[in-house]
Amino acid sequence: MRTKLDIVRLTLYVTDHTLRSRQAIAQLERICAEQLPQRYDLEVVDVLEHAAEARARHILATPTVIRELPHPMRRIIGDLADMDKVLAGLAIHPRKREEGT
């Protein structure tokens, strides 16, 4: 049985639909699907389209990923290509090995 606490909620801030944004979205989705199957919630926000929200959350640059849940919040910025670095930056420890049993 999985509790609400198990859910990892992420928000990815990107700029427009540039090639880099598309890559960032694809990379993060892949990481989530592989490492957090069934237990993640990913929202993608275009900072140009939602400028007020971006300002309110002090998004200085993109791609920025905020781990909203579990608390405390963490945020990373930069290239999302390296899965391990992304997971480490977001302090997510996949339970894959534990769940594999």
């Binding site: 640059a61 905020i66 930069g78 290239d79 930056g89």
Partner: peptide, 8 residues
């Protein structure tokens, strides 16, 4: 908050 910088 700038965010933890990651790079590949």
């Amino acid at each position: 908050c700038f965010g933890f910088p990651v790079h590949a």
